[in-house]
Design a protein around this nucleic acid. Sequence first.
DNA 1: ATTGACTCTGACATTAATGTCACGGTCTAT
DNA 2: ATAGACCGTGACATTAATGTCAGAGTCAAT
Lengths: 148, 148
Amino acid sequence: MSRSIIKLRSAIHPKEGWPLKIGELSKATGASIRSLRYYEKQGLIAPARTESGYREYHKFAVEQVKTIRLYLNLGLSTEQIAGFLHCVLMNKEAFCNEVLPVYQQKLQELDEQIQTLVRIRSNLAERIQSILSERTDNESMEGTNDES
Amino acid sequence: MSRSIIKLRSAIHPKEGWPLKIGELSKATGASIRSLRYYEKQGLIAPARTESGYREYHKFAVEQVKTIRLYLNLGLSTEQIAGFLHCVLMNKEAFCNEVLPVYQQKLQELDEQIQTLVRIRSNLAERIQSILSERTDNESMEGTNDES
DNA sequence: ATTGACTCTGACATTAATGTCACGGTCTAT
DNA sequence: ATAGACCGTGACATTAATGTCAGAGTCAAT
């Protein structure tokens, strides 16, 4: 019973308890440990630390990380996410005025990228067609030489 | 008249003459000097060298570089281009069997990329609509409070 | 106390074409 | 021969999130 303080912490968070260590949060969210540390460096999450330096994540951090990943999957940068994450974690997204401009800018970027890719795709498809038709021309010419 | 050999070369290529130096080829093709050197390192072009080490580009190099840039603009990598450039410079594209597989693979990649972007775009547009409609809901609710 | 699982930080790598800089050699007109 | 424009090579930077490794510290169970 010499480590009473530690026992007390264990008693409060019986098993698989809170706060989470980084590996536990990683499993809970699907984000790699490396990514969690990166999000922290980008200012997206700020875990507490134990005396020995281990990160301590509170319960809310799971939702927080999932939210971050949702926005990353929309193609937003960590910098953009940092601009409104604080707000959207506390309110409905629609009440955060910083969100809509970012969304609309991203939408425009996406439209431009799509347009570019579609244009390239057209060029490429046209060239493929051109090659295929030139080849069939040749095959049919060969066919006329040997008509049996 | 001590530099007779040099005078001779000048006589053969009177002014702005061949072979081109790298800066001249750059202007003739629109590719930066940096890029021309890069294409060389990637094995796409192999200029001769003067005794002093300057690159010498023959007339054909202009077409060659323009061809390289055409393929780059289709999204192909220098490595892919290297796989068929030699052939397409000497034949019609349709006769180079290495071209079509590369084109078709690139087409598939483009389709996947476009699909991804379009999917993200849909998510984003949906979220924007959601925000806008929530806001109009609120505005109309405010409107009902003040009905004069 | 020792071992194994976990964590910490910091660093380097990834991709591909291009920009840019530094330092030094070459050419040409004066 | 000297200045100015040109060329040579080599190196570092760019972008953004993530992987991976090394070296060291922490924790828990035996």
